[in-house]
């Protein structure tokens, strides 16, 4: 395929043009023997024990942003969702829905980025599908990925596992992705170095699970941010969660942009951060393990699980006051003044 080409409806019609796109563009990038067999699905051996299976669709606008792009997001997002089940992600499927007229050079850039992300996360893209729809029916490209992974024996990670006395760890600074996308989408020119935190977290999770320390809950606070995810956990586990505002890691420029626009970093998306809830006695050791990972250097303990206020997240503010952190109810809207 020529770099200057644009994607036509023919590319998704299943005929010669479709095949050419698969064999010339997709297969060389996602290179692996399971995909090369070109069957209707991938066939593979599974390790004994339990499996985790997750799916997510990616519709981000803009496609390319500081710190990543839709392709990297689509791989990391599903890798992370599988990892948050306490699993080692193994195989990924990719469904591409492309708008007619998309530039091949853009598509290639996205696919290359997916291949790189898969390699980094050590997962294989083994099956997929491509559809091309008429102009205006999707916004350039939508990507669905599903992932499957194996859960090591003895691991039981679940949103209902938080217990009073547990500590809440976040693996790094919050709201980086959300602020980056908002700034890019609205064409806001800030003289700052904010960028998306898109990253695979499966190696970090593997390190935690292999250490043998019990991990009660793992979640990646993506859409809705830390505030929403912690509310989900508090509800599922019927416990209270108490956060300390002065411990929440937020980069200076991210905090500044949030203040300017009236956004709360607690509700902005992250794409490379996890929340780990672990017994209080093990928290420092687990924190050390997370910090050893390339994407966990800024990890901190931000709060604790309590018996009081079941189902609620309570924040102790900078000045020693308290407030409830509610679940995000809709899109945050920029304010007038």
């Amino acid at each position: 395929m020529n770099k200057k080409d644009t994607i036509l409806l023919d590319h998704g019609a299943g005929g010669k043009v479709s095949h050419a796109m698969f064999s010339e563009l997709i297969l060389p990038l996602f290179d692996n023997e399971l995909l090369a067999k070109q069957n209707d699905g991938a066939v593979f051996e599974v390790p004994p024990g339990r499996m985790a299976f997750s799916t997510d669709s990616y519709t981000v606008d803009p496609l390319f942003f500081p710190g990543g792009d839709i392709g990297e997001l689509a791989v990391n997002g599903t890798v992370n969702d599988v990892a948050m089940c306490g699993a080692i992600p193994l195989y990924i499927s990719v469904g591409l829905i492309i708008e007619e007229g998309m530039q091949v050079v853009d598509l290639k850039r996205i696919l290359q980025s997916m291949a790189r992300a898969a390699q980094k996360a050590d997962v294989r893209i083994v099956t997929g599908d491509t559809k091309v729809v008429p102009r205006g029916k999707v916004d350039k490209i939508f990507i669905n990925t599903s992932g499957i992974g194996s859960i090591p024996t003895g691991v039981h990670v679940s949103g209902d596992g938080a217990q009073p006395g547990d500590k809440v760890i976040v693996s790094g600074t919050i709201a980086d992705h959300g602020v980056t996308i908002l700034s890019e989408r609205e064409g806001l020119k800030f003289d700052s170095d904010v960028k998306s935190d898109s990253a695979p977290l499966n190696h970090m999770v593997k390190g935690m699970l292999e250490s043998g320390y019990p991990v009660h809950v793992l979640r990646d606070p993506t859409r809705g941010g830390l505030g929403t995810t912690l509310n989900e956990i508090a509800g599922q586990s019927t416990v209270g969660i108490r956060l300390f505002e002065d411990r929440l890691p937020v980069r200076g420029p991210v905090r500044g942009i949030c203040e300017l626009l009236g956004f709360d970093p607690l509700y902005l998306a992250n794409e490379g951060k996890l929340i780990a809830i672990v017994p209080g006695a093990d928290a420092d050791n687990v924190l050390d393990i997370i910090r050893r990972d390339a994407f966990g250097k800024d990890a901190v303990i931000i709060g604790e699980v309590t018996e009081q206020d079941p189902g609620r997240v309570v924040l102790e503010t900078f000045i020693g006051g308290t407030r409830i952190v509610e679940m995000l109810t809709g899109e945050q809207l920029p304010r007038i003044c």
Binding site: L315, T317, I319, G320, G321, T322, R323
Partner: peptide, 12 residues
């Protein structure tokens, strides 16, 4: 109003 709620000023 928002700052008062956000920093938990009423509670102190």
């Amino acid at each position: 109003t928002m700052a008062i709620f956000r920093y938990g000023i009423r509670s102190v």
